[in-house]
Simulated assay, not measured.
Amino acid sequence: MVRAKYQDVLDLGEKLNIKEGKVEEENGKLKVWGTASTQYEKNLLWDEIKRIGGENPTDIMADIKVEDESVYARHTVASGETLGKIAKQYYGEPGKYQKIFQANTDILKNPDLIHPGQELIIPNL
Rank of each mutant, 00 (worst) to 15 (best):
E26H: 10
H115A: 03
R3C: 02
P94L: 02
V66H: 08
E26K: 11
N110C: 14
V9N: 04
R51W: 08
L10W: 10
G28F: 02
K31C: 01
E81D: 10
Y90E: 11
E26S: 12
G53F: 00
I60R: 00
L83S: 03
I86D: 09
S70C: 01
P116C: 05
V2I: 15
A4T: 07
G28E: 08
D47W: 04
K96W: 09
D63K: 00
Q7F: 14
L108A: 07
G53T: 03
K29I: 14
D68T: 00
K31T: 07
E24Y: 11
L125D: 15
E93L: 09
E48T: 06
I64W: 07
N56L: 14
N43Q: 11
G54I: 05
E14M: 14
M61P: 00
L108H: 00
M1A: 04
L16R: 06
L108C: 08
P116A: 00
I122C: 07
E41G: 04
G80W: 04
A36V: 10
T82Y: 09
I49A: 07
Q98A: 15
L120V: 08
G95E: 09
D68I: 04
Y40G: 02
M1L: 01
H115M: 05
E67A: 15
E24V: 08
D106R: 12
W33N: 10
M61I: 12
K31R: 03
Y91M: 08
Y91S: 01
L83P: 15
L10Q: 05
Y6E: 13
G95F: 01
T82K: 11
L45N: 05
K19N: 13
